[in-house]
């Protein structure tokens, strides 16, 4: 994974960058599965590896595919990054060890989700329960974000054409994304 990341820094062909990014996402998805986050892994694989890569390729089709020149190595950027990274590492030192079941994170709110969500909400998948019910409002916000981005892309790229079907807010986010992609595909074919 790290290899792909560092590869990304060096490679100039943007097609390769986009593909490599897809690989990066897939690896991340694998990691999620290992860490018991199956739902997240699905989403990452579909959204991160899938849609994002498609978006990037689409953009590349519209712009140029080769990065031109590298400026001189940016020392300031390096310094900022190193300081930030060092800060983060420093912060991790006091963290509870990975996978420790007694860490505070697992003892407070999460207990209730796991213990009672079956009774209180219903679905056996706790993630779904939390997403849809306990933190349903976040999901509404998330939908709003997607809506914002969709309208934003429409404004920026829709050249005077208002052709897009209305979507109802209660639709699944997945549908929205599909719509967005349709929109973009449509634009691409026009060009």
């Amino acid at each position: 994974m790290a290899v792909t990341a560092f590869g990304l820094i060096r490679i100039r062909n943007l097609f390769a960058v986009a593909m490599l990014f897809g690989v990066f996402s897939l690896v991340a998805a694998l990691l999620y599965v290992i860490m018991d986050a199956v739902d997240v892994a699905f989403t990452e694989a579909a959204v991160g590896a899938g849609i994002t890569t498609v978006l990037m390729l689409g953009t590349l089709a519209l712009t140029s595919s080769v990065e031109k020149t590298h400026g001189p190595r940016n020392l300031l950027a390096m310094a900022v990054v190193l300081v930030t990274g060092a800060g983060l590492i420093y912060g991790t030192l006091d963290m509870p060890a990975y996978g420790d079941p007694d860490a505070p994170i697992h003892r407070h709110v999460a207990d209730r989700y796991i213990g009672k969500s079956g009774a209180e909400v219903g679905p056996p998948n706790v993630v779904t329960s939390v997403l849809a019910s306990y933190r349903g409002y976040d999901t509404l916000g998330e939908v709003t974000v997607i809506f914002t981005a969709a309208v934003g892309v429409l404004i920026l790229l829709g050249r005077g054409r208002g052709r897009h079907t209305r979507r109802r807010p209660e639709d699944e986010p997945e549908l929205w994304r599909g719509d967005e992609r349709r929109l973009r595909d449509h634009r691409e074919t026009e060009l």
Binding site: A37, D39, V40, T43, E44, V47, G48, I51, T52, L55, M56, G58, T59, I105, H106, V109, A110, Y113, I114, V126, V127, V130, L131, R135, D138, T139, G141, E142, V145, I146, T148, A149, A150, G152, V153, L156, L157, P173, R177, E180
Partner: peptide, 24 residues
């Protein structure tokens, strides 16, 4: 712990939205 999963589901979607906008 399911909560981080939930958060990240949201965050992934937000991230894609941002990316789409940035690319536009």
């Amino acid at each position: 712990n399911p909560l981080p999963h939930v958060l990240i589901l949201t965050a992934i979607v937000v991230g894609v939205a941002t990316t789409a906008l940035a690319l536009a």
